[in-house]
Design a protein around this nucleic acid. Structure first.
Lengths: 225, 225
DNA sequence: TAAAAAATATGATAATTGTCAGCTATTAAT
DNA sequence: ATTAATAGCTGACAATTATCATATTTTTTA
């Protein structure tokens, strides 16, 4: 069993504010899980009762709309925490979390996190800061959803993926999403997402290799925003 | 000059977690302002350098999209705090705040709030909780923007206004917005908002008296969601 | 490996929403 | 009180996006 105090992942999230003795304590009660692509980590309305620290992989946070379609609100990845929002609000989770690829995560029980929030100002302040940053990002998403066309949102999504996940040596995006996922991120019908991606391909903005996407003309995509 | 420790407004926000001596300190450095309808409290990109506690009135938080249109992200009202997000992120504000009607607010300098955040766990935890709740609401707005029609969003907005601002003895909503404001809340063209409100009127879902709106058939509005 | 299932792709069409123009009513300014 | 400015309203039309139908390709399962 790996030890939190030796884990470098914590440097990327609020857990970095914890002291060595706290990390040792967390190590003692955390559980490490492997999650297969497509597996549900938790579902909207559930009690999560803790926080996941993502050691590897990516998952999508989505919410079912009354029209029966899933909206992906956020992609959460290596280094991020998962489940803080509902833990802090002492609420069931408002989002479902589903693995986009194989993941490795550590689950830390709620009581431990609450203990540290109450006893370590640096930790709670860092968590507060993360939350404030998330809120700013969410505001930006709201504005994009409300004011931009599907084409613009899809272009932005591609740039976002490039920025956040990078590309491999062939230039292919380091994250693979289904067309349905793309549609659920930009909030459109799957057919519309497919159509626009095809158009982008025709126009030389992107190319594809199987399900992998490569950005060919980043400036043209940026100009669409 | 009124005193924070005697002000009942603080019961409605995180300031309730402060102790009497802290409130006395805040009283000494806060400034009370009257803001006229339409006045700008702060603008996107500015340094706010503190938090506003809203004693009376309503303001809209909006963001300018690249297409030149304003998107109203949130309405902030009596009892709410304003400016926490950017204070905590130590960032310029991402939103503009404009008074929807005449307001009375108290401005508390950043240094004071930061002092209390670091020294009063109850205060920082409450702030964290507020932020988490805001994030949940923002997620809901994202899903609505992405998945619902303009008509559905407008119906929801009317119900939201009814819930949050109530109605007077004639049944008129206790908040008056321009058609442009309605459009900027739901993220549509002003003409579209006008058209749909007219349709709602024809269908007997609402009635209007000048700029005041009255909800006539709440169930029909709810059924649209 | 063959069959079944799922994902991707594309066309046709309908529904929704945006844009532009012009007009009326209301509010503000002189 | 009159004029100017703003807000509200409506029609016509264009653009965007959703829906439904149907191939085709890819992936999964037996």
């Amino acid at each position: 069993m790996s030890k939190c105090e030796q884990c470098i992942i914590r440097q990327f999230n609020s857990l970095k504010a914890l002291h060595k003795e706290d990390l040792v304590r967390l190590s003692g009660c955390k559980t490490t899980k492997t999650i297969k692509k497509g597996e549900v980590i938790f579902e909207e309305g559930e009690n999560v009762n803790g926080v996941y620290c993502i050691k590897d992989g990516v998952c999508k946070l989505s919410k079912l709309s009354t029209n029966g379609k899933d909206q992906i609100v956020k992609l959460v990845t290596k280094g991020d925490l998962l489940g803080q929002r509902s833990l802090i609000s002492d609420d069931t989770t408002n989002l479902s979390a589903i693995a986009v690829n194989d993941m490795e995560v550590c689950f830390i029980p709620k009581s431990e996190i609450v203990h540290d929030l109450k006893n370590n100002v640096n930790f709670s302040m860092d968590m507060l800061k993360e939350m404030a940053d998330d809120l700013k990002l969410a505001d930006n998403v709201i504005v994009d959803m409300a004011q931009k066309s599907v084409k613009q949102r899809l272009a932005e999504t591609l740039l976002y993926l490039q920025d956040n996940f990078g590309e491999d040596d062939e230039g292919l995006l380091n994250i693979v999403l289904s067309r349905e996922d793309y549609a659920n991120i930009v909030g459109t019908a799957t057919e519309s997402a497919i159509r626009i991606l095809s158009q982008f391909k025709k126009d030389g903005l992107i190319s594809t290799k199987g399900k992998h996407v490569k950005i060919e003309n980043i400036n043209a995509l940026k100009r669409m925003e």
